[in-house]
Design a binder for these strands. Structure first.
Lengths: 370, 370
DNA sequence: CTGAAAGCGCTTACAG
DNA sequence: CTGAAAGCGCTTACAG
């Protein structure tokens, strides 16, 4: 693919007599830089990698000459070759199990990517999005015929659900990675930065209990993901401690009207909803049905919409610091790839706290309200 | 980095007597596969790359044996080595002059990235985001000390304003790239996929003229970007053709109340606003000021918010197909990098049409209305 | 101080 | 049909 075609260079007079590549140079290599600078290829590599330690000292004049040619040709070392020769590329991969960029309905990753981009810029790495892994049945496969994970020095894994076998295989492979979201696969050996949904959900449950609620209903997503389980566990354990029970149902959001009818039959005074979008729709259904919120029914969302402007209602809810999640994941991955750099290390598994937002959709329960 | 540590394999009895890697295998190579299957390393490569053409025929029995070992060891070829051996690295770079991922206030790139991701997936390339180029004074520099553009096979450029000198230098470097948005730098040699703002703005002007508007006001952004100029030109030429003038002012949105006061003194019957967010704010200011929209004042937005849910008002406006813009840019870049593949080539400079949305903020002008 | 050389893990003509 | 060998562009001991 990158043949041995000869490249031509000429002096560009409008540019202070610097060398400028013409005639579609296939790919500039260190050998060409070396020729142009009148040194050996190894010297170019040495200059490039700033080996200024006692053993290999290159005269400043030579160094400057080489650097100038590099600037003029906008040369960069071939990442694949560097990689093969055993050094890193300052490349962090991002593998998303679903499409990374939102369509109109879902916008799960955007805040994470915002945090990731900021952190990546800070530590000076580029981001490689593995879009070549095709999305099959709504999901990407980590290991497939033409796996390219190793183009990057390490990788961030994003997705609501991750395949436990793939995760185990990855953790056994010694390839540096960090999952975003708590993962309990591989006997707890997965490095992750997750959200403490359990604690925040428990706080919200406690709040409802303190207000006097006794009749709880929980509508959650049909996933087996840790994030779904943590919320469920947080709610259940807090209620169990108070001697209360909760009626639970699952919804994928395709028939919320039916879900609402079922909720109504259950006659709860407080409804916990995992998905913020569902919470909003259910509130509208309740009101349309003559059930006032929060007077007759409190509704609590265990998540929130991506951007404030999408919230027409100020729900009583938990708020996950998603940008922070992204930047902390980058920091942890950086540490795994490059070591702690002297300071005490970050824990391999981290949970960041949610904020509990009081909002306006929870009130003291009314008897026989629904 | 990937040492020569010896790997151990053992028969896993729970797995039908297949070979399974144990003890943190550093990295499985073709050489190991070859040893295990009792063939040469080259044969493994041949099997892997499915070279079944007349010259290189491998007996099915051998092939199956090799494939089985590959499955058992969960081997994948090192992409860096493949790439170095001459198979392309299938990497498209994305250089964004501003931060690629949105904060709460702006979300310029997201729809583009959605289109880019879809197209990248289709042609099987990964996406490299140049986040290592630091954002200085709100902008990234294309050419800086540690330019890493050549990490990718080619590159997409996104940003409202691009430096003409940088663009010229890039186009002279023979590095394949495509700008998103019309660019007239470098004597028209910049390959781009842009939006035809001029035509859509002219259509909207025509609409207003046909409704009987004679008093026009235009509030645009303080940029010298092509996108700003095209809209201005579209409006001006259409009005000039009808013998009408337009009062023009610039705003950066920081003091829209003052802008509104100025507009009001101008007493237009129709107000064109470049930025959709500003249009929305100005409409609110007008209404608060006792000026009904569109009865007393028509307002036309020359852009739109990123997502429908953010539109509280159905503005008369133009709508740019941003996802399409992203996917067409990928297609054009792919062509520039790899050739047309037989079919007739895509034009190097493309303009996609906007949709004109009638909306509810334009009406027949009332005399002495404002 | 700098060059020649080995080696990273692959692919692909080219010989057997 | 399959193996030995060259080469992709780098980095890094190791000799001069």
């Amino acid at each position: 693919m990158y043949g041995n075609t000869h490249h031509q260079f000429r002096l560009n007079e409008e540019n202070g007599g610097r060398l400028v590549a013409i005639n579609r140079p296939e790919r500039v290599t260190q050998r060409m830089i070396a020729e142009l600078a009148g040194v050996s290829q190894a010297t170019v590599s040495l200059v490039l990698n700033g080996k200024t330690d006692s053993t290999t000292r290159i005269p400043d004049e030579t160094r400057q000459r080489v650097l100038q040619v590099i600037r003029d040709t906008t040369y960069v070392a071939d990442p694949a070759a560097r990689r093969l020769a055993g050094v890193g590329n300052n490349l962090i991969g991002i593998f998303t199990y679903e499409h990374a960029f939102p369509n109109e309905s879902s916008d799960f990753y955007t805040p994470l990517l915002t945090g990731i981009e900021g952190a990546a810029e800070q530590i000076g790495v580029d981001l490689l999005m593995f879009t070549s892994a095709p999305v099959i049945e709504g999901r990407r496969r980590l290991f497939h015929e033409n796996n390219r994970l190793r183009l990057a020095d390490g990788c961030l894994l994003l997705g609501r659900e991750m395949d436990a076998d793939e995760l185990t295989r990855l953790v056994n492979s010694d390839y540096p990675f960090v999952a975003i979201g708590r993962r309990d696969a591989a006997e707890g050996r997965i490095p992750y930065v997750g959200v403490d949904y359990g604690a925040a959900t428990a706080s919200l449950a406690r709040l409802a209990i303190d207000l006097g609620h006794k009749s709880f209903y929980y509508l959650h997503l049909p996933y087996d993901a840790e994030s779904t389980r943590d919320r469920k566990d947080g709610l259940n354990s807090e209620l169990a401690a108070a001697g209360l029970a909760v009626e639970t149902a699952v919804t994928d959001g395709t028939n919320l009207a039916a879900d609402w009818a079922r909720v109504r039959r259950g006659q709860p005074t407080v409804l916990f909803v995992e998905d913020a979008g569902h919470a909003e729709a259910l509130r509208n259904l309740a009101i349309a049905d003559g059930v006032s919120v929060p007077e007759a029914l409190s509704i609590i969302a265990l998540g929130e919409r991506t951007r404030p402007s999408e919230h027409t209602v100020d729900f009583t809810r938990l708020s996950a610091p998603r940008e922070e999640l992204g930047s902390r994941a980058v920091a942890l991955l950086d540490q795994i790839m490059n070591g702690t750099g002297g300071s005490t290390g970050l824990p391999q598994q981290q949970l960041v706290s949610c904020t509990v937002i009081a909002g306006t959709t929870m009130a003291i329960p009314r008897v026989g309200s629904i």
